[in-house]
């Protein structure tokens, strides 16, 4: 096969955005669906992430690094979403419609030891492990997503894997499920007083 001529980076913002969009919209959608309880909410996360990418197009790294950069943005959008700051974006409505009713496939292993072990890990550990296992990102890409140095990613990943293995071992040995502290605790509160303030 002859050597391919070097491809030119699209020159206009529209062309560059189109190129990024084409290369990343499906991985980004999958990333968001995996992390949300309601799949159609991923439409808003994807749209918001691309809006940010468009507005900050000059910040988007060239080439393959665009994908982890977008994951990093999506991670922040998801954090806001999970904090309850949910935005409904009109331009996401059609995508939302297409996602409505989609049911996440149920894996036989979904509730096995590894998921329980993951649930016991800190958020940072879980995310870095999922970026490897689910997003199949390389160390360099994870560094872009998390805004860390490559060395820091290596150390964190090593420690997270070690903790995951330890937790799996503990769970396998004890076979005792972790219980929710509040499960047997009364969840009523003392009656609130009335306030005089009104909106």
């Amino acid at each position: 096969m002859g050597r391919q001529p070097q491809q030119q980076e699209p020159m206009t913002a529209d062309e560059r955005f189109a190129s990024i969009f084409a290369a990343t919209h499906l991985p980004l959608l999958a990333y968001a669906v995996r992390r949300l309880a309601v799949p159609e909410d991923a439409a808003d996360v994807v749209a918001e992430t691309f809006l940010i990418a468009w507005r900050r197009l000059d910040d988007v790294p060239p080439g393959e690094d665009a994908r982890p950069w977008l994951f990093g943005v999506a991670r922040g959008v998801l954090a806001n979403h999970q904090r309850g700051e949910r935005r409904r974006i009109a331009l996401a409505e059609r995508l939302r419609e297409d996602l409505r009713g989609f049911e996440v496939p149920r894996r036989a292993s979904r509730l096995d030891d590894v998921e329980r072990a993951m649930a016991s890990l800190p958020d940072d550990d879980r995310e870095i492990l999922r970026l490897v296992a689910w997003e199949e990102l390389a160390r360099d890409e994870i560094a872009v997503v998390l805004g860390l140095s490559r060395g820091a990613v290596r150390v964190r990943l090593h420690r997270a894997r070690k903790r995951l293995a330890q937790q799996m071992s503990v769970i396998a040995q004890s076979a005792q499920p972790t219980t929710l502290p509040a499960a047997s605790t009364p969840v009523t509160k003392p009656r609130a007083a009335t306030w005089s303030e009104e909106a």
Binding site: R34, R110, D112, W134, M168
Partner: peptide, 10 residues
Amino acid sequence: PMTYLRATNP
């Protein structure tokens, strides 16, 4: 464990 974790990809 990473092999197990990959299998949990929802």
